[in-house]
Design a protein around this nucleic acid. Structure first.
Length: 473
RNA sequence: GGCGGGGUAGCCAAGUGGUAAGGCAGGGCUCUGCAAAAGCCCUAUGCGUCGGUUCAAUUCCGACCCUCGCCUCCA
């Protein structure tokens, strides 16, 4: 079966066939963070989703170029820079750094390119010039440049590829910003915003005067610069479908840079939002969490990743503390099984068990059904445990299972990162030996007291047929 | 008002025109000096409500209820 993705352009699941004639290389762009603050758990659902797409494509043998932009100039950033009287770069770099740490903590592979908007101003200006040259953009009286949707449509292009739009029935309402009053039509959007006093030191020269880029243009400039004018995959949160991605298409295809018969992007994938305890995350509801908030509550990145990858990406996912709690025992069960398999396999090598890989691939080929894939993994764990329990598994079988697991975990990234469990300190190990001696002497009172002492020190004794093991409590 | 998702066990979440994956929680058991840990087993006659189509619907159709989101800040 072929790999299939739901493409927002067609609103249907399609076979994935990259542009590359050899079908090997894939260009993938995901809208990244605006670094005005720490990323929240909803942002990271999208980035974990992008990470899953990238890893799965690699698992399927594609050479992926994964690009994620860093938006480091934008209204909120400018406001805060001026409030705090720091430079733009000083302000954004701290959150950019935090973002990268958070990605690492979640076990997300770093994108191959993470371009910053402020470092692509020339490319942005170039695109705007092209659009001006083709008559698709116009200057307003204050020097801002807008994209004209009506001109774009007059040129035979389609605006409204990702969403069904009916401008007449839309409610422009309160959200129209004051700096967009100069537009010819409400649907038009800013490519270049002319400098205003509130911008402080944040502005760049351009053929149309000093100013800064509009919201959408950076993604067009950076994606086309790195991946070419036409590439395979573009990802983002569902809220970006309109207007952000729609405008990105208009700008990018408006340049006419794409080869004949090719669109700007072949497959658009959108990740659904998450709710927290059934509600939209908001500061006023007190259910707004950054990754760091959760970590300070004692949950680790691995557990959070596990939770973020528990539902299909196109379904709204209800993030709850109940769910987060359940990650730890579930992962412990997985670790336990893998430890036992490792122990049995010893140094034996074997080729990966094809059954696990086949079931796993079938699940993810189907528009990344990660919930199904996890079901496959845990069913496999049960099967392995049964064979371990009735001693029917041979070292070769264990080695084969582990080899398959390693393949699977290249995609899921939920396996324990470090080697086996932490090593207990010598004092604790000494107490354990003492306890063993007491047990041998059938002095159970002393043995139990030692067990309690060890437990107080943060370690749990697990008596097995091969002797006691120490685990961190 | 327009558009689009959802409603599956205590919680989270897959899935299917032929009778419900998986995880957590809960119960039982095995192991054990006793425990713990671990493992195994069990746990929805039911998939929002009401109609319809069908030999058969949770799955298709219609209506309704509830809920979430988008409609130019938003992952």
């Amino acid at each position: 079966m072929a790999l299939r993705f739901f493409n927002t352009l067609s609103r249907s699941v399609e076979d994935f066939i990259p542009w590359d004639p050899d079908g090997k290389t894939v260009g993938m762009y995901c809208c990244g963070p605006t670094v005005y603050d720490f990323g929240h758990i909803g942002n990271f659902r999208t980035f974990a989703f992008a990470d899953l797409v990238r890893r799965y494509l690699e698992f399927r043998g594609y050479a992926v170029r994964h690009v994620m932009n860093i938006t480091d100039v934008e209204d909120k950033i400018i406001r805060r820079v001026n409030e705090r009287r720091v430079s733009l770069r000083d302000y954004t770099s701290q959150y950019e750094k935090a973002f990268l740490e958070d990605l690492d903590s979640l076990g997300c592979a770093r994108p191959h390119d993470m371009p910053r908007a402020t470092e692509h101003i020339p490319g942005i200006i170039e695109i705007i010039s092209q659009l001006m040259g083709r008559g698709l953009a116009y200057a307003s009286t204050d020097g801002s440049i807008y994209f004209s949707i009506s001109k774009y449509r007059d040129a035979g292009c389609r605006y409204g590829q990702l969403v069904t739009l009916d401008f007449d029935s839309m409610r422009p309402g309160e959200r129209v910003k004051s700096d967009e009053y100069e537009k010819e039509s409400v649907a038009d959007f800013a490519l270049w915003k002319s400098r205003v006093p509130e911008d402080g030191a944040v502005f760049w020269p351009s053929p149309w005067g000093e100013g800064r880029p509009g919201w959408h243009i950076e993604c067009s400039a950076m994606s086309m610069k790195i991946l070419g004018s036409s590439f395979d995959l573009h990802l983002g949160g569902e809220d970006l479908m309109f207007p952000h991605h729609e405008d990105e298409i208009a700008q990018s295809e408006g340049t006419g840079a794409q080869p004949p018969g090719r669109r700007f992007v072949k497959y658009w994938l959108h990740g659904a939002h998450l709710l927290v305890e059934g509600k939209k995350m908001s500061k006023s509801l007190g259910n707004f969490f950054t990754l760091r908030d959760l970590e300070s509550r004692g949950y680790n990145g691995r557990e959070i990743r596990f939770v973020l990858l528990s539902a299909h990406y196109r379904e709204t996912f209800n993030f709850s503390f109940d769910g987060l709690q359940s990650a730890r025992p579930a992962l412990a069960r997985l670790d336990e099984c893998l430890d036992k398999l490792s122990e049995l396999a010893g140094s034996v090598q074997a080729s990966p068990d094809p059954v696990l890989l086949k079931d796993f691939t079938r699940a993810l080929d189907d528009d990344l059904n990660v919930a199904e894939a996890r079901g496959v993994v845990f069913s496999w764990v049960r099967g392995m445990n049964q064979q371990l329990a009735d001693k029917s598994l041979k070292p070769e079988g264990a080695a084969s299972a582990l080899a398959a697991w390693r393949e699977v975990d290249r995609v899921l990234g939920i396996g324990r990162a470090g080697p086996a469990a932490d090593c207990a300190p010598v004092e604790v190990a000494a107490l354990l030996e003492e306890r063993q001696a007491a047990r041998k002497a059938r002095d159970f009172k002393k043995a139990d007291a030692l067990r309690d002492a060890i437990k107080a020190g943060g370690w749990v004794i697990e008596d097995t047929p091969h002797g006691p093991k120490l685990k961190k409590a």
